[in-house]
Amino acid sequence: MSTTITTISTSDGADAVDRAPSPMRGAHRRWWLRPRFAISGTIVLLMILMAAFPQIFTGFGPGPTENCDILLTNQPPSAAHIFGIDIQGCDYYTNIIYGARASILVGIVVSAIAFGIAAVVGAIAGYFGGWIDALISRICDMAFGLPFILAAIVVLQLFGQRNIWTVIFALALFSWPGGVRFMRSSVLEVRNREYVQAAKLLGASNGRIIKKHIVPNAITPLLVLQTLGVGGMISAEAGLTFIGIGLTPPAVSWGLQLAAARDYIDAAPHLLIFPAIFLTVTVLGFVLFGEALRDEFDPKGK
């Protein structure tokens, strides 16, 4: 909405001098009152809390594999066990809460790594141009050519023992090229802005210009892209684990729970339904949060 003032002044008068304030101004006013931002933000926050401090949600109760009663398996939801009991006889609610950690950790760490690589490499490619740009762009093109999931499967196959860090490594390995391209194009746009030229004329070094002017002004779209990407990484982890190539027991994750529930779909459908709901809500939460962020920074990009 902050663009309206632009309509007044740029269409009026010769030039866009008294142009609109940056989209940040005013747009931040009462963002928490906007339903999409509020709902998705709450989900994201809740999921991150759940991953960091699962005890809060399980009432300081036991860990996922404690207090299990092997005699009681695949029990449907009841008052004592609201999500029922799983095949091992453990409380399924506790299990799902602890399962968030793997999913969220993979999603956020992979996206953060991709963000870091993309920010640095994309800024270098966009700012310096020439052969550096050509080299980086070609490497990105090649990495882009690989089907993401397939490449991750191949890499994961190389590890006999797979834990959460191997999965993160495999996903991070191929997750940055899109971000690099994205960052490069927004740097290209910022690079020729007049304030960058003004800094050059003052004698600023390339390092200073990149750090002070280019990155702060070009990073926002990448930040949004990577936030949107968190959801994708969470589902990738769940998918890989589900087909047996990701995490392996005794790890706890939604992917593993879905994989285990597959065999009891008739007898205990709740084993499939609850992790699926959590997975979907989380992915949706991050995607909506990314979109809300995008609109926050760029009200015209809807």
Partner: peptide, 14 residues
């Protein structure tokens, strides 16, 4: 030193 045409564009908005 150079003074630019578009005063807003010549100042880093952040």
């Amino acid at each position: 030193q150079l003074i630019f045409q578009d005063p807003y564009a010549s100042l880093d908005p952040r």
